[in-house]
Design a protein around this nucleic acid. Structure first.
Lengths: 261, 261
DNA sequence: AAATTTGGTTCCAAATAATGGAACTTTCAG
DNA sequence: CTGAAAGTTCCATTATTTGGAACCAAATTT
């Protein structure tokens, strides 16, 4: 109640970024009129806004007038990734965890009610990497997300998820805030989270939370794999390893970033 | 001489993006005053601009007041990558080329005088992928860049490189426009480009140009590896394979994108 | 082939947001 | 503790964005 209302509007930039989100996060390419029907801007305004985004390389238009996210985003993002200190600190611990378990290891940060995957370490499979990095998934149905949420109190979680429609990705996905909070209570007791096919059928994981010293950043590490290999027993067996990884990352952050101030 | 002057200013967005570039593309984190000395904005203005970028998640500030590119860029970019049709079309051909040569294969697009790497397919080494994707390198010292430039005429290349200071990455890097144009003339004759340790010591590659039907996009494929494995003979041996890959990609683009209009 | 609809672009007075100089507060160094 | 540097806020002025309507062009119907 009396919850998260935008304190300040970000003016021109905010409007343009909202538009960029609309176009870039859509699953299919949109033409001018499609965008017009989704944004509530007058035609003239929308047209100029799109032109500006295109001129800056944030969007691109093909010859059929369909808009796509532009490659300037890629080059900015590669800097964002390369310069991310947290990711750099975590990396060796992710590799170690990968070696110990043999399964895929993820590092994700909580951003509002979403998890953004910052890094991924895989075994020998030559599977595509970028497909996961930068990807945003709902916190309520991912191991990393629930682990990160478990650091917050129920009121905060409730407020941020107020009015959210929980999407049923699988039959195991939590259907609402009550389910989520019950799970999170268990996660707090255990110190680690499970995802048993809640986001994707046949995929399970164990995750542990990471919080920065200043408490401004919440994140998580996880070990993920196909259900036929990653049995409930395996998940329990790996839980301590995942917690150790999370603890080591926090400690390294503390010694590398903490003392400075 | 009377070269590329910005035709239109992009208003507020343009100024903010220039600032974002300044901070995100820098190699070290900058604090407020560092940025102030590089941008020619008054303090009040700069402060508000940075705040807006931070509020939108495009930049982040740590507790010591240093600015970093924000993770919102990552999630936008992951969509940009996932939705890039050109990349998707090229992918199987890159894999094939990788299998045939055993070395790392790159796909890059020309953007002005820079190459942005769109994809990378490696052999068994578990080396980091994202480190290359999204990365921007000068066209004049990369195989992909020179291959793409070779499609343009000398006047265009000269104009875009006018006044550019060629950075000597290695002792083999071209020192100026004359060197570059001479190399490019050879590339046009052969149909493929070499990079013999011009960008990074000990790294060589062969590359072939790709152009889209509408001529609006120039790109290139390359095979890259360490000089001790990738001998001049190997480069010559692989050149036809690289050209075949480029040709197949162009053909697939034509059949999948061309006919539509 | 003419008429009509749909999709996209341009214009400009009014509304809104950005600007920048100065005052103010905090942090840091000596 | 003091002074200087760094960072933040304020607000009248200035510049940009806004949005309705007119305009143009391509596709579709008659």
């Amino acid at each position: 109640m009396g919850n998260a209302r935008r304190v300040r509007e970000t003016g021109t930039l905010g409007k343009l970024m909202a538009l960029l989100d609309l176009v870039a996060l859509s699953d299919y390419p949109m033409r001018f009129t499609d965008i017009l029907s989704l944004s509530d801007q007058p035609r003239g305004t929308l047209h100029r806004q799109l032109s500006h985004l295109v001129e800056e390389g944030l969007l691109e238009v093909d010859r059929d007038g369909r808009y796509f996210p532009g490659i300037r985003l890629l080059s900015l993002a590669s800097r964002s990734w390369a310069r991310n200190e947290f990711r750099a600190i975590a990396e060796p611990h992710l590799r170690l965890l990968q070696e110990r378990t043999g399964e895929t290891v993820h590092l994700g940060v909580l951003r509002g009610i979403e998890v953004i995957y910052l890094d991924k370490v895989e075994g020998r499979q030559s599977v595509r990497m970028y497909s996961q990095i930068g990807n945003a998934s709902p916190a309520y149905c991912t191991g990393v997300g629930k682990a990160a949420l478990s650091v917050l109190d129920d009121a905060t979680i409730g407020a941020s998820h107020a009015g959210l429609q929980f999407h049923a990705y699988t039959e195991h996905t939590h259907r609402g805030i009550a389910d989520l909070l019950a799970d999170i209570a268990a996660i707090r007791r255990r110190g680690y989270a499970f995802d048993r096919e809640e986001h994707e059928s046949g995929i399970c994981c164990v995750a542990a939370p990471i919080r920065s010293d200043d408490g401004n950043m919440l994140a998580g590490v996880s070990v993920t794999g196909p259900a036929y290999r990653v049995t409930p027993e395996k998940l329990e067996e790996w839980a301590p390893l995942v917690r150790v990884a999370a603890a080591s990352i926090m400690q390294d952050m503390h010694s590398r970033l903490g003392p400075k101030r």
